[in-house]
Design a protein around this nucleic acid. Structure first.
Lengths: 158, 158
DNA sequence: TTATATAGGACTATACTAGTCCTAATTGCA
DNA sequence: TGCAATTAGGACTAGTATAGTCCTATATAA
């Protein structure tokens, strides 16, 4: 099971592309689709959702396209996740404490709550401009990432 | 979308119950089902999965039931998650780096990888005996949890 | 021998996911 | 003016996952 769904991943890439083009005019769905290797139809759908949520603006007609409605430093990955996939929550039980038979003494959910907060903060504090900076860093990161990829899939298999 | 699925949540509770009864003999599926408020049929299925994975043992027949095959300190929530739901992974793209058009310079996946490692470590280091200890703690935790529940759903809405 | 248990295969309704298809509506420019 | 490029958005689909039930077989303590 993927925490970050494929569509959300696509949206991340589209938004990162728009971030790099921030202040340089609109980019059409066609171009975004080609550059980020996401089908044209799906690109349109994702951009519409991001548009409806207020993170991007659009111009219709020839020379039209999309552009960020605010600075990349003001848009976090958590924002994008929330728009594209239903908001991540850690456990169903936390939806309403009344569902949990152990109620307030349930130690499992006490701990999961901490993890949920961490994930929330992590994605909320990770903004598009930070990702651009990391991308523009020297080859250090490339080397590090290459090593990490030995693991390939981040899983909980132990 | 729930990171910890409902079935996994049920399994956590069943295993915590067995942890509390560790060394005190077998507990039947019927009793576990009643105490943890999970349907009998589903309780049986979950216990079978945990049994097949080697975390619990069983005795058939009258006075039969289930019991942990090792100490609660040797079983983590990550173990249970892996048995009941497909292993958590953060992003599809990380399944194979070749799927990612930006490959090794993809800053998004570099950061998501860090988050994935954190989640992995968190759940791997959280063992059943730790949860029992938290449960047996004084009323401090109860008070803390009660305050946290003001938020109710752990989400990424910001 | 019988009642109490686990073991496990098969099946189902529901919902979600990723994605496509089709038809508007808008607008820059020749 | 009218065409072509572009966004806007509703409807639909195949495939898959989830939570759960149903039924039958097998083992065993008393």
């Amino acid at each position: 099971m993927e925490i970050i769904r494929r569509k959300t991943d696509y949206a991340f890439r589209l938004m990162l592309n728009l971030s790099i083009n921030y202040g340089k005019g609109a980019v059409s769905a066609r171009i975004l689709s080609t550059e980020e290797k996401v089908s044209y139809q799906l690109t349109c759908k994702l951009l519409q959702q991001l548009h409806d949520a207020g993170y991007i603006k659009s111009n219709r007609g020839p020379k039209g396209g999309y552009f960020l409605s605010k600075s990349p430093s003001q848009i976090s990955l958590a924002n994008i996740v929330t728009v594209i996939q239903s908001p991540i929550s850690l456990s169903d039980c936390l939806l309403g404490i009344n569902n949990c038979p152990k109620k307030s003494i349930c130690s499992i959910h006490l701990e999961l709550h901490k993890l949920g907060n961490y994930i929330d903060n992590f994605l909320s504090n990770l903004t598009l401009n930070q990702l651009i900076e990391i991308r523009n860093d020297d080859s250090d990161n490339k080397a590090k990432f290459s090593i990490n990829n030995e693991f390939n899939k981040i899983s909980l298999n132990k």
